[in-house]
């Protein structure tokens, strides 16, 4: 059987796939992650490619390809990004719904994230909150609050101090029992027995103002995300290294966590959540103790995370200038409800 995708490096075939749709290109992405091969050295031969495949190839860094059946809509994408291409047959468009959904207004990164979500390759889980009411003491903090977030979506919740932003996150984490209402993370109800077994699906990044200064190294903090996994020490070390490299903090691994700057600590926290394989990330005022460069670092990390692993992310903050740069959808928490 002829492969749907063949990738050569020089004369050598380094990758093949028989899958359909865009899956071969996602498989190629996985393959390249584990190898140290510059994508510019590859020659990709695809059976059919439309605009979606073109966007994916560009995102992967492919610079040369041959497509047997090419959609005219792919050509501007290839040309705009300097991809050398040839084709067997050119058609006006290919019969694929995805082709119609990629609009001209989408950047390559937007299209990539959209395609990942469509391929079920985002890490995020849907979050559904229904009629949530939470009391602290005798005071009602959240009242009949509802919220729905899709896989890999992001949301900023802002509002004045004391409106219940942190309470909402703590309820999502299961620290606080609601008076009424339900929270579903994926198919699991928060507070159920199943949730107790899967609590690590939700990662938590707080303000990084851990008050104790008891010695702990940066890599030990990152490894906390693997506390519940039955893995060998070697496997843990490997996963921690991957996560720390991913968030650009592996060079800090052996340093005392408490000697790090706020921005570095946030990188370690994100590495911890990546180790944990958290599929929903909750950020509680993550910029509170960061200087301007720490805030820029965090912004860069969040943008990268949302376009790659794409966990579902909820961030609570009142720092409007920084939130403007983040450019995520926003809701305000007011009077115990989101508006």
């Amino acid at each position: 059987m002829e492969h749907s995708l063949i990738v050569r490096r020089g004369e050598e075939i380094v990758f093949t796939s028989n899958e359909h749709w865009l899956h071969p290109l996602f498989e190629l992405e996985d393959y390249l992650k584990g190898k140290n091969i510059p994508p510019s050295e590859l020659f990709v031969r695809d059976k059919i490619a439309g605009k979606a495949a073109a966007c994916l190839m560009v995102r992967l860094g492919v610079t040369r390809c041959r497509v047997e059946l090419l959609s005219e809509r792919a050509i501007p994408v290839f040309r705009a990004h300097g991809v050398e291409f040839s084709y067997g047959e050119l058609v006006e468009h290919i019969q694929c719904r995805t082709e119609d959904l990629i609009t001209d207004a989408m950047s390559i990164d937007d299209a990539y994230l959209f395609l990942r979500k469509r391929a079920g390759r985002v890490q995020g889980l849907p979050v559904k909150i229904e009629n949530l009411t939470v009391d602290i003491g005798r005071k009602s903090i959240l009242e009949d609050l509802s919220l729905e977030l899709g896989r890999g979506e992001q949301l900023v919740i802002h509002g004045a101090n004391g409106t219940g932003k942190t309470t909402l996150l703590r309820t999502l984490l299961g620290f606080i029992q609601p008076v009424q209402g339900t929270i579903r993370i994926g198919d699991i109800n928060v507070g159920s027995n199943e949730w107790r077994q899967n609590r690590s699906l939700v990662g938590y990044v707080h303000q990084e103002n851990v008050k104790n200064t008891f010695p702990i190294s940066a890599e030990e903090v990152a490894a906390i995300g693997l506390s519940e996994r039955k893995l060998s020490s070697k496997e843990i070390a490997y996963r921690v290294e991957v996560a720390m490299r991913r968030t650009g903090c592996f060079h800090l691994a052996r340093q005392s966590y408490h000697s790090l700057s706020g921005g570095e600590k946030q990188r370690i926290s994100l590495a911890r959540c990546l180790c944990q394989n958290a599929r929903v990330l909750l950020f509680d005022e993550p910029t509170s103790f960061l200087d301007s460069s720490g805030k820029e670092d965090l912004l860069e990390l969040l943008n990268e995370l949302s376009s790659t692993e794409a966990p579902t992310m909820i961030l609570v903050s009142h720092e409007t200038a920084w939130l403007d740069q983040l450019n995520w959808p926003r809701k305000e928490l007011k009077g115990g409800r989101l508006c």
Partner: peptide, 19 residues
């Protein structure tokens, strides 16, 4: 040792990590 490390660091983080 791994779970203790999590609890010693921060009990809330330990809880959210599944410990």
């Amino acid at each position: 040792r791994r779970k203790l490390r999590a609890v010693f660091f921060d009990r809330e983080i330990a809880f959210s990590s599944g410990v």
